[in-house]
């Protein structure tokens, strides 16, 4: 009995490792055809599902029409300096034929550059937007607000962090997107809206974690600084932040990792087109959104390409989260 219990418990514990290993292996195996086909060039290739001499499926056609419609708003800028050949309109389709030297007639080109750039930029916008606000909230809750206010607001923030991300996406699509479009012009779905919605989504998460880090600062340290005549700003800047530094950085990186892999908050508002956002108010795409939208109608190589993308996302966010949790947040 005793031994059996221990064995079963041990098996359960190893399950986490098994799942993780299986995920990596399965994703790699499923992505293998795409990895062999495109290799590392996948990261730098900006065309998606561009196909020569072969009829396009209706889904791809409608995507291309979308792209064409947006062509007028497209401005080449520093994102794409050396990628001039990627604008996907009909003319390029024909002229591209001779450029694929190593391919046969029906090769379809897939590249991850657009979703990768979209993911990184939407996450960066999210971080730029949420960082000051979340830090403000964290400092406000732990140092400024009277405890009668700090407690209920703190609970509210934690509850808000638990709201499913699809709610943020839906709100972004119907309310926040139009609001931003009125403010800055451009589309109601765009890189900017996606980044901001993502930012709003991680605010409660980041604020709650940072507040927890700040409250670990011993009162005695703060009181000694106050006793020496330091102002609140000086106490926070010179005592609280240095002490809670690794916790705060950890919470920021963890929020970054969360924003990176977020699907539903972004799926509604990023537009889902395989095109760089020339302006910040243009629609583009991100890795999770590509995965969410294209799985059902993919098979063969196009499916394998999606697994390749999933693998990239998995490795990337795993690394980010591992850095946050194991380096900065350890020992808590």
């Amino acid at each position: 009995m005793e031994l059996l219990f221990k064995k079963i418990a041990q098996l359960s514990a190893s399950l986490v490792f098994v799942i993780l290993a299986a995920t990596t292996v399965v994703l790699y195996l499923s992505a293998k055809p795409a990895i062999q086909e495109f290799g590392a060039g996948f990261f730098f290739e900006s065309r998606w599902a561009v196909e020569e001499k072969v009829e396009l499926s209706p889904a791809e056609l409608s995507e291309l029409e979308l792209l064409e419609a947006d062509k007028s708003t497209f401005i080449s800028d520093d994102f794409i300096e050396d990628e001039d050949d990627f604008i996907m309109d009909d003319e390029d389709f024909i002229t591209d034929d001779d450029m694929e030297s190593d391919s046969n007639e029906s090769r379809i080109v897939y590249g991850a550059l657009v979703p990768i750039v979209g993911t990184i930029f939407s996450t960066l916008i999210a971080m730029l937007f949420s960082l000051p606000i979340a830090m403000g909230i964290a400092v406000f809750l732990s140092e400024i607000a009277p405890s009668a206010l700090a407690k209920p607001v703190g609970v509210a923030i934690e509850l808000l962090a638990s709201i499913p991300s699809i709610i943020y996406g839906m709100w972004g699509l119907f309310y926040f997107g139009p609001f931003i479009a009125d403010l800055f012009g451009g589309n109601t779905v765009s890189l900017l809206v996606a980044g901001l919605v993502l930012g709003i989504m991680v605010i409660p998460f980041m604020a709650a974690l940072s507040r927890d880090a700040i409250t670990t600062v011993p009162d005695m340290l703060k009181e000694s600084a106050y006793a020496m005549g330091a102002t609140k700003l000086e106490v926070i800047k010179d005592v609280v932040f240095p002490y809670a530094k690794s916790g705060i950085i950890g919470s920021i990186i963890l929020s970054f990792g969360r924003a990176l892999g977020e699907t539903m908050a972004v799926a509604f508002v990023i537009g889902g087109v395989y095109q760089f956002a020339g302006k910040i108010t243009d629609p583009t795409n991100s890795i999770p959104v590509v995965l969410a939208n294209s799985f059902a109608e993919s098979s063969g190589l196009s499916l394998s390409v999606l697994f390749y993308l999933a693998l990239i996302l998995f490795v990337l966010s795993f690394a980010v989260i591992a850095i946050a949790k194991l380096y900065f947040l350890r020992g808590k």
Binding site: V16, F17, L27, E262, P288, L306, L313, K325, L326
Partner: peptide
Amino acid sequence: FLRDLSDVMMSAPSIVVGTF
């Protein structure tokens, strides 16, 4: 190791679990 692993898995992107 297992502890760290489940810690990281807690925050893994849910869409990747879907693809798996």
